[in-house]
């Protein structure tokens, strides 16, 4: 491919190739503080290629694929190339990563212990992790938490934080323009803007820690907190994992241990500020 970049995020190394220069240039600058070893052997190859020869030049249209791909993935406009690259890397992790149990969850660390937050897109787990990462916690990841099958530790995967719609304003006001990517307007998921994690999150991206609290956040509801049964937690976490089945019995053992050992709560919150207060209070009480 004409344009390329090798990038290390947490334990994974990606080789990203693109038919166009723009997505690679944006990645290179937003991931400037991450290792970009030009001559590394990558865990995954990501390809941003034209859907056809014509589509390389006229209304450029990106087909996202790589070592692992979805045949029916919808093509994206070149103006959303940064998002395409991020989705390409997520796709490789979701379909190909085998060295940890992958949980679709955000995570932050404090005093050597990890808070894991899982929920659907729109639950606020991403925004919450981003905000906590600015307020004394170490940001570990907004999309995937990696559960080590032997030690039970959570390992970071601190890629760029992908902020959507209203969350963009909330977080951009707090971190400043220098750490924000370009506004990607009107994507399939609405407006998206990426945020670069703080330097400490990147510097310690090889360091895991034991999980101490699991939350199921839900944004946009009156403040509330509920206990969640262990069987339900197990079921929700298997549904939030793309490689639980592929990893077999070690994943079963690790996940049942996680569910038994880590206290959990579901929390509803109307605003980010209230959520942070609830999280800090729960952390004091339970973790």
């Amino acid at each position: 491919m004409r344009h390329q970049l090798t990038l290390r995020i947490g334990p994974a190394t990606f080789r990203i190739g693109s038919a166009w220069p723009a997505p690679i240039a944006q990645l290179t600058s937003l991931y400037a503080t991450y290792p970009q070893p030009a001559d590394a052997i990558a865990d995954f190859t990501v390809r941003l290629q034209p859907t056809s020869l014509v589509r390389r030049f006229i209304h450029p249209s990106i087909f996202i694929t790589g070592d692992h791909g979805l045949a029916d993935a919808a093509p994206m406009s070149l103006s959303h190339g940064l998002l395409a690259a991020e989705m390409g890397m997520n796709l490789q992790m979701a379909l190909g990563w085998r060295r940890h149990l992958l949980l679709h969850a955000s995570s932050v660390e404090k005093d050597g212990r990890v808070l894991v937050m899982t929920g659907e897109s729109g639950s606020g787990k991403s925004t919450l992790a981003a905000l906590l990462g600015e307020r004394g916690w170490r940001f570990m990841g907004d999309e995937f938490a990696l559960l080590d099958l032997e030690s039970g530790a959570i390992l970071p995967f601190p890629r760029l934080v992908s902020l959507k719609n209203r969350a963009i304003g909330v977080v951009a006001g707090e971190v400043g323009a220098a750490r924000m990517g370009p506004l990607l307007a009107a994507t399939a998921k609405g407006d998206i803007r990426h945020m670069v994690p703080r330097a400490d999150a990147v510097a310690h991206m090889g360091q895991g820690a034991m999980p101490a609290l699991l939350l199921f956040p839900r944004f946009g509801h009156a403040a509330d907190m509920r206990a969640v049964g262990q069987a339900e937690i197990f079921m929700r976490l298997t549904q939030a994992s793309t490689n639980y089945v592929a990893l077999g019995e070690p994943a079963f053992t690790a996940l049942t241990r996680f569910v038994r050992d880590v206290p959990a709560r579901a929390i509803d919150f109307p605003t980010g500020e209230e959520a942070i207060a609830m999280v800090e209070r729960l952390w004091e009480e339970m973790a």
Partner: peptide, 15 residues
Amino acid sequence: VAACALDDIVLLYHP
């Protein structure tokens, strides 16, 4: 199978 009881549910993993 490998079994694990969580609350009143038993999980069975069948390798």
